[in-house]
Amino acid sequence: MCLGIPGRIVAITDETRKLATVDVAGVKREVNIACIIDGRALDDCVGDWVLIHVGFAMSRIDERQAQETLQILTELGEAQQEIAAMRASGRG
């Protein structure tokens, strides 16, 4: 109920009720997309990656932000390796 699952909008099915078909790891399901339209034409939402909670797309997954977070984690990992190497050499 609270965790949500990522899926991709593949088609608009009902313009009035703001319903769309999403593909969740190969499973198709109709969901409401009212919360992620953000002033766009409905057809422009096709292709969006969204997080789905209880039959509603609740957030568009921000790919740039996801990459940035992963980049930070990669750099943190590299820094940790440096620190470990310094400690191991006894001059840290």
Partner: peptide, 8 residues
């Protein structure tokens, strides 16, 4: 998290 779905 689920309040908007009930409201809509």
């Amino acid at each position: 998290t689920t309040m908007p779905s009930t409201a809509l």
